[in-house]
Amino acid sequence: MTSSPTAALSEAGVSIWLDDLSRERIASGDLARLIAERDVVGVTTNPTIFAGALAKGERYDDQVHELAAAGADVDTAVFEITTDDVRDAADVFRPVYDRSSGFDGRVSIEVAPGLARDTAGTIAEAKALWAKVDRPNAMIKIPATVEGLDAITEAIGSGISVNVTLIFSLDRYRQVIEAYLAGLEQAKAAGLDLSTIHSVASFFVSRVDTEIDKRLVAIGTDEALALKSKAGVANARLAYELFEQEFGGERASALLAAGANRQRPLWASTGVKDPALPDTLYVTELVAPGVVNTMPEKTLEATFDHGVITGDTVTGAYTQAAEVLDALAGVGVDYDDVTLVLENEGVDKFIVSWNELLDTVRGALEAAR
């Protein structure tokens, strides 16, 4: 007997990661509580999350004063503050990491979003973040832009565990898997222990529905409106089909036999944006073995309170999912344009949040001085 929907979700093979982090959450014991009471086994962060935490977090005051006294500039201060939070969170999750043999207990930190189109800059920052956090259960988030693909390969090849973020299209996801496998081959050639290298591929869900639903409403036909809020789940289900195909292939199988890990699909952007939809939609409809669902706390609590977990809701639905994408094309929705717009918007939004974070820290440093 499972005691809660989140426990049932875990038993169905879904790793629950929290999409939020702050020093208050760590220091107050709330993060440890979520591990114990909500089956949370990992954390993801992004520039928006850190900007929010820094803007209202009194627990950062002492460190800000120390950095100001040391003459730190704003970039150095942000680097120190965020890596400290991730290191401390990684220590909270270390027991989860140990008992899952490195599978879970992961804490992700993202390279500066302004580097999303800069391969060399992303590689350098990924290595700097990995060295600074200095915890085996950290993951470095690298965006799945064209420029990010070679950076993913280089990071994996160097033994860095990577959370690939901002994936919207199936074609780009295929390229991300290719980049991961190429990195593993480099790591193997360098004599690294492949079993220590982990990766997830963060496939965004609700943002796909938001963008496509806007286009469907503009089209306005009954046929178009009948497709509202179906694209995100369909797209993610087809991503899981691709995951199964690619990691069942000869190339991946050879690496797995050498001790490598599969790059797990991660469902991101799982908070429901449309209030007319069930608030657990992107959890209950995307249950499959070996995936991660990273949830904002509101979605986590909704799932714990009233989520209905019925087992695998993905692997038997590939044909239906493909039909949804075909129908969208039939009414005039350009999938390639949608996913390109979403990738560019995703990068731009994180840059805005990053700049807000820099402004917050700059103001705090000036006040401290």
Rank of each mutant, 00 (worst) to 15 (best):
T2K: 02
T6M: 00
A7K: 06
A8C: 03
E11C: 01
W17T: 05
D19C: 08
D20S: 14
E24V: 09
R25N: 05
R25C: 07
S28V: 05
G29F: 14
R33A: 11
I35D: 07
I35N: 03
A36V: 01
A36I: 01
A36K: 11
R38V: 02
R38Q: 09
V41A: 13
T44D: 05
N46H: 12
T48P: 00
L54V: 13
K56S: 13
E58Y: 09
E58R: 10
D61K: 13
Q63N: 08
H65Q: 15
A69E: 14
A70Q: 13
A72G: 08
V74G: 09
V78D: 10
T83N: 15
D84G: 08
D85K: 01
D91C: 00
F93L: 13
P95Q: 10
P95A: 05
P95S: 08
A116C: 07
A116Q: 03
D118H: 03
A120I: 10
A128D: 14
D134S: 09
M139F: 11
K141P: 00
T145I: 04
G148I: 04
E154V: 11
I156G: 02
G157W: 15
V164P: 00
L166N: 04
S169C: 06
S169R: 09
R172W: 03
I177Y: 14
E178L: 09
E178I: 04
L184W: 15
L194E: 07
S195I: 09
T196G: 03
A201V: 03
F203I: 06
F203C: 01
I219E: 10
G220I: 05
E223S: 12
L227F: 02
K228Y: 00
A231S: 15
A236D: 02
R237F: 08
L242N: 00
Q245L: 02
G249E: 02
G249F: 04
A252P: 05
S253D: 13
A258G: 08
A258L: 10
T284S: 13
P289H: 12
G290T: 11
M295H: 10
P296R: 11
E297W: 07
T299L: 08
H306E: 11
I309G: 12
I309W: 07
V314H: 06
T319S: 08
Q320T: 13
A321M: 08
L325V: 14
A327G: 04
L328Y: 02
V333P: 06
T339I: 11
V352A: 13
L357Y: 14
A367H: 15
